[in-house]
Amino acid sequence: MIGIEDCLSEAMSIPGALDAILVDHTSGMAVAGEGVQDPARSALGLTEAFRATLDGIALSSADGTAARIEDVIITTDTSYHLIRPMEMMFDGPLLICLRLDLEHSNLALARRRLRTITHQLIAH
């Protein structure tokens, strides 16, 4: 069982990790970050990116049912952004957002590691 800060350092130990941040999606607050220059700004941007994804996917889902997102992967010209929501006991979700070097990371591995880490954080 790990706490919030351990969860961040675990995420940073994933090969190719550049920075990691935990964001409270409801309020758009940066809960904790590692390697992030302006956490408040990143938190706002990532919150909006995730919200746009949620809205877009909800609108485009054929059966019109509620959308549940496992993770969001965004590939830019230099890095991967991995956004993974964690349903907390109340409120939330808490987003764990990891940025990975495009050249020096293994996306499949990183996804799996991130999933394990989030399970550890909310396992009881």
């Binding site: 069982m1 790990i2 706490g3 919030i4 969860c7 409270d24 309020s27 607050m29 809960v31 907390m88 006991m89 109340f90 409120d91 939330g92 808490l94 550890q120 954080l121 909310i122 396992a123 009881h124």
Partner: peptide, 21 residues
Amino acid sequence: LVREGVLSRGELQFCVLGATL
């Protein structure tokens, strides 16, 4: 509460920080 398995440490921290804010 964490030892009793009611919630995980991460959840407790998030709960406390959320309620405090």
